[in-house]
């Protein structure tokens, strides 16, 4: 029987003693995404429950319309057409989930950053444990479209918002707290999305964590930038800039 390796005598082993695991970046990124998948599943499940309910109702209604003494084919056809629409909706929800966990090059499509930010906020509000979180979004005039992969950009914005919620600390029971503020504005050749949150009283802001790591990866893959500004005494700002869509 092989002998067990001796345990390390101290935890502060140097780099040369314990070389880092040679895991490719893409694999680490994928692992990070998988770690987040658990949280995302609840949001995606919500997206699937709605069309599944509609399909069940439409199928049952169509059967009833067709099986009566005087079959109502027009109403049955309406129900069947709705089933197709709901089936497509489910496919899109599943595709969105797959996009998040499977490695692939981001697409460079025309994306509305404001719409994606609103979707990210809606996903947060769909989680009952975060429904009381106050998020305010302001949008500047004439914000152009940005270039990228809508699913990934929405995820990056979602992760920045989740980071802001975590970093700003627990909400006081029954009391109000400063809202998380989002702002989208037009720069010369980019669109800026800023998320501001109250600076935590205890300790510095952590600019790492799986959520922000994934956001950084998505941002880098899109040629966008991210910066955390802690110069204010009371507020932390996470600034991201996204290249505008050139066509």
């Amino acid at each position: 029987m092989d002998s067990m390796p001796a345990p390390s005598s101290h935890l502060g082993a140097t780099k040369s003693e314990n070389p880092p695991l040679q895991v490719p970046w893409s694999e680490r990124e994928r692992a990070t995404r998988l770690a987040l998948a658990g949280e995302l599943v609840s949001a995606v499940t919500h997206d699937l429950r709605q069309p599944l309910t509609a399909i069940e109702m439409n199928l049952s209604a169509a059967l009833l319309f067709l099986s009566g003494d005087e079959p109502r084919t027009d109403r049955a056809i309406e129900a069947l057409e709705d089933i197709f629409a709901q089936q497509r909706r489910m496919s899109e929800a599943l595709q969105a989930l797959e996009d998040l966990v499977v490695c692939r090059e981001p697409r460079h499509e025309r994306c509305d950053l404001t719409a994606l930010a609103r979707e990210a906020i809606a996903l947060i509000r769909a989680d009952p444990s975060m429904r009381e979180t106050s998020i305010e979004l302001t949008v500047g005039p004439q914000t152009p479209a940005v270039s990228g992969d809508a699913t990934l950009i929405r995820q990056a914005l979602l992760n920045v918002l989740l980071h802001a919620i975590d970093a700003s600390g627990p909400r006081p029971a029954g009391g109000s707290t400063e809202p998380i503020r989002g702002a989208i504005s037009n720069l010369e050749d980019a669109v800026e999305a800023v998320v501001s949150y109250p600076k935590p009283a205890d300790g510095p802001v952590t600019s790492t964590g799986p959520g922000l790591t994934l956001a950084r990866a998505v941002i880098a893959a899109h040629g966008a930038t991210i910066k955390i500004d802690e110069s204010s005494e009371s507020t932390v700002r996470v600034l991201t800039t996204w290249p505008t869509y050139a066509g």
């Binding site: 709605q50 069309p51 309910t53 509609a54 399909i55 109702m57 439409n58 049952s60 209604a61 009833l64 319309f65 109403r75 309406e78 129900a79 709705d82 629409a85 709901q86 909706r89």
Partner: peptide, 16 residues
Amino acid sequence: DDTATCRAVSRLLEAV
């Protein structure tokens, strides 16, 4: 708030 669910549930209830 989901229009499709509203429509589908309404369709079934009308059918019965």
